[in-house]
């Protein structure tokens, strides 16, 4: 086994190096956004926005505009659409997501029929973590810097607004601006990452590591840190396993995330039982 690994050294390939760099960067920034999205009960945002950005790609190609730009614009429009509809149905955030997601899928479905050159369409639809171009590498690095800076600088604002938006406004926070920045950032991150590593990876990295973190974290700060740790772990492990076992990388990363979640739940149960038993013994 060891010999096989040595002969078949994973990092000798440039595309694997890029897969690790981009994978880790995305695994750091996606859960940062994901924590807030999940706590706002908008877990399906990732899917909704990436489907809407497909419609943007199609529109870009039909209208002769840069499709990446189309994707970003549609994703931003969809993100603000969700915010707008969410205010109309305050207690049913998922309604907003369902509406935007269906609109995105429907529009993408119709518009893709009018794209003359399906090859061009395909190349924008298709994202794979093992096929990252130089351009995508740079854009993901830039995006990571932007997201990390924003999350660090607006950490307390984002926390307070997620916990209690009204109180945050009363505390003098420019909630409208912070909301605007966050929504914009979410839309840009999802539309770019979905084109780079694929919709599956991005929408699951937003939610699954956060779900695991919520099981063990003892504070908001820990929730963010655990989410990032779990996301990076599942990406790195997923890439290694998919390389040596010959699995598809996207699916492997997602399933490792699920295995982490199940392990965390099992661990929590065992600890709980042990605690109860100890208490019972002490009481006896």
């Amino acid at each position: 086994m060891l010999e096989m690994i040595q002969n078949d050294f994973i990092f000798q390939y440039g595309f694997m190096q890029r897969a690790f760099i981009v994978g880790i960067l995305i695994a750091v920034i996606t859960p940062c956004i994901g924590v807030i999205v999940v706590l706002k009960r908008l877990s399906m945002t990732g899917d909704a926005l990436s489907h809407s950005s497909l419609a943007g790609v199609a529109t870009g190609l039909v209208a002769g505009v840069n499709p990446i730009l189309g994707a970003i614009v549609f994703s931003i429009a969809a993100a603000f659409g969700i915010e707008r509809i969410r205010k109309t149905f305050p207690k049913y955030s998922e309604v907003a997501i369902a509406i935007i997601m269906s609109t995105g899928i429907g529009l993408a479905g119709i518009l893709s029929g009018f794209v003359k050159n399906s090859a061009a369409f395909g190349s924008f639809l298709f994202g794979s973590i093992v096929a990252i171009s130089d351009f995508e590498l740079y854009i993901v690095i830039g995006l990571s810097v932007l997201v990390t800076l924003t999350v660090v600088l607006l950490y307390k604002e984002l926390f307070y607004m997620t916990f209690d938006e009204e109180a945050a406004r009363l505390a003098g926070m420019p909630t409208a601006i912070v909301n605007f920045i966050f929504t914009l950032l979410t839309a840009i991150t999802i539309s770019i990452s979905a084109r780079t590593v694929g919709t599956l990876v991005i929408s699951s990295l937003m939610v699954i590591p956060v779900a695991s973190a919520l099981q063990v974290a003892k504070s908001f700060r820990q929730t963010v840190l655990y989410s990032v740790t779990f996301a990076v772990t599942s990406t790195v492990l997923g890439l290694f396993i998919s390389y040596y076992a010959g699995f598809k990388p996207g699916g492997t990363i997602v399933l490792i995330g699920i295995i982490i979640l199940v392990s965390v739940l099992a661990y929590k149960n065992i600890v709980k039982k042990a605690l109860i038993q100890r208490t019972v013994k002490v009481n006896l």
Binding site: Y13, A245, G246, K248
Partner: peptide, 13 residues
């Protein structure tokens, strides 16, 4: 088209 496995890509390379 579908996503190729990294193992396959390494093999081809």
């Amino acid at each position: 088209e579908s996503e190729p496995t990294p193992a396959r890509m390494a093999e081809i390379s």
